[in-house]
Amino acid sequence: MRSGPRHDPITDELQSKIKTLHSSIWERRADWPEVLDWLDQFEDHDDPEVDEQLQALRLLSSFMYFGVNEIRALLRSLFRDTFRPQVAKEVRSSLHPSTALSTVGSMVDAELRRTRFVPLGNPSESSALLLYYFRQENALPKDLFIHGSEIFDLSAIGSGGGLKVQNHNISRYVFIDDLCGSGQQGREYSDRIVKPLKSISPSVTTYYYPIFGLSDGIEHLRTHSAFDEVYPVVELDPTFRAFAPDSRLYVEPKIAPLRLPTEATCRRYGGQLIPAHPLGYEDGQLYIGFAHNTPDNSLPIFWCDHTASRPWRPIFRRYPKVSW
């Protein structure tokens, strides 16, 4: 265990960094006893080059945690800097360039009233919680929010009628999510909800706005889904993948040689925890967590718990979707 009076400048520096993160951004999560308890699951070694505990500690010191305040700020940005300007752009494109700004403004407001914000997934999942914050932060009326099932009117289906939209007056549907990893979940949702919607109501515009999105996943959705517009507030390019050749964690020449050994360590433990996805769902390799949950695209060594195939003490626990 890396504790006690031994003075190791690297450990000291990392511990100091984690202490600062713990008392600020991490909202007092992961205090040192928890960190030690977590580290204890890795092998330690006198040689820092092969010391798994040091590798894990270094990774942890780079963990990107987004607390409630940060998530709320990003949701403000999602509306103010992403969605509203997009609507304004669309409104303006249909108007004469000389139209007064006040006219554009009132038309944008009218369009917003014909917009519905929809959580991506089940009402018990995180995106529903995000929509609650989203509404508060942007001071939006409650009736602009619906669940995915409320898009359609199913009443006629049993009596020989087809699928209809519930409100013909709606011109825009905005689907909000916390993270787009591989894009697979978004694509499934698109197939299940957006495609049928577009087939019966081709004129509506659909938007997929995750707070965070991996570039590959975003690109995948842009080309393989029915969403008209796919745009994350924060795009995570491949350098955000922990062990990518150009990973931003191992840029420093002194640290760079640790990339492959650390990957091997994470793969070894990850393989015991989530054999199919040792470095996170669809090889996500992320080191990101939110106040409400840790996404499964992050490295399993951070979030796996006793429910994994090997019992594990997580440092940023994930609350999994339980199947009954």
Binding site: K19, S23, D31, P33
Partner: peptide, 8 residues
């Protein structure tokens, strides 16, 4: 105090 509480 900060260090002590952080260290449990």
């Amino acid at each position: 105090f900060d260090w002590a509480t952080f260290q449990g």
